[in-house]
């Protein structure tokens, strides 16, 4: 195994910032180290120097690094209890809006976005909704656009669907062939996928509901606070912010203008 020192990680982060304009300097170093070591192993590189040389001299290799450094692990209807709260406490509020705009920031391959579309459809709201899915990883977004997922996890997803309070039959939403399932086009028609970097890009619309789950755990406190400000400025009055199971806005400057929905990781903007 090629072991990388903290100083070497800093060198790489400087290169990525200076040459390509991607700023990872406020990410968890412990997590970055694992990702970089993983790339070096998978690509069978023999040294840190070789990795750095490729990074500095090849655009294509940098694209590959972005794809591999980002953790794209995701699931449909992960944490059914959370989605049940969305169905019971958030969606009823959305009903009153003539037009619903939702943002999934850091949506990876889109499973979360399809989950939300299904829940909106069952509430009879999908036709007046638009769901934005953004990520820094363009390859993940390509997969999201296709709505094609491996069949392996479908059983788990069906269980999640039932536990989340799904009203229909989960299998009505996809067709399967071989090892893959394709989700219904009617869901994808209400989605827009585009790259957006939470570190450097600004607000691009206003929303009634923003999801950002398991993305900010990779950020240091300063960056977390900045990103939360970005969400705050992108949320309408009385809008909702939904985070991952282990995330909180409690210690951030925006906290005072939000109230939490019980013990759920969902906060509502007060004004």
């Amino acid at each position: 195994m090629v072991i990388i020192s903290d100083e070497e990680i800093d060198l790489l982060l400087d290169d990525m910032l200076e040459i390509y304009g991607y700023d990872f300097t406020e990410y968890s170093k412990a997590s970055l180290r694992r990702r970089i070591q993983r790339i070096i192993v998978n690509d069978r590189l023999t040294s840190f120097a070789e990795f750095r040389y490729r990074l500095k001299n090849s655009n294509d290799y940098f694209t590959h690094i972005i794809e591999e450094i980002s953790v794209n692990v995701t699931e449909m209807l992960r944490d059914p209890g959370f989605y049940r709260a969305i169905v019971e406490k958030v969606i009823p509020v959305l009903t009153s809006y003539p037009f619903i705009r939702i943002w999934h920031a850091g949506c990876a391959t889109g499973e979360e976005v399809y989950s939300m579309a299904i829940l909106l459809k069952e509430a009879g709201l999908l036709h007046k909704s638009l769901i934005y899915g953004t990520d820094i990883n363009p390859a993940a977004l390509d997969k999201a656009r296709q709505g094609i997922f491996p069949i392996g996890q479908l059983q788990q997803y069906s269980r999640n669907y039932i536990a989340a309070g799904g009203k229909g039959d989960f299998s009505d939403y996809y067709t399967s062939s071989y090892q893959l399932v394709k989700f219904d086009e009617s869901l994808a028609r209400k989605m827009v996928f585009s790259t957006h970097n939470l570190v450097t890009d600004s607000s691009f619309n206003s929303f009634q509901l923003i999801f950002c789950r398991n993305v900010m755990i990779y950020f240091d406190k300063k960056l977390q606070d900045r990103v939360l400000q970005l969400f705050d400025s992108s949320l309408e009055h009385f809008g909702f912010l939904a985070l991952g199971t282990k995330e909180t806005i409690r210690f951030s400057p925006i906290a005072s203008n939000y109230s939490q929905l019980g013990r759920e990781k969902i906060w509502r903007k007060k004004s």
Partner: peptide, 19 residues
């Protein structure tokens, strides 16, 4: 916590990692 990896930062703080 279940379903997260646990990592450590140089300042000894915990990082939860969903990879």
């Amino acid at each position: 916590p279940p379903d997260y990896h646990l990592l450590f930062e140089k300042d000894q703080s915990f990082t939860l990692d969903y990879s």
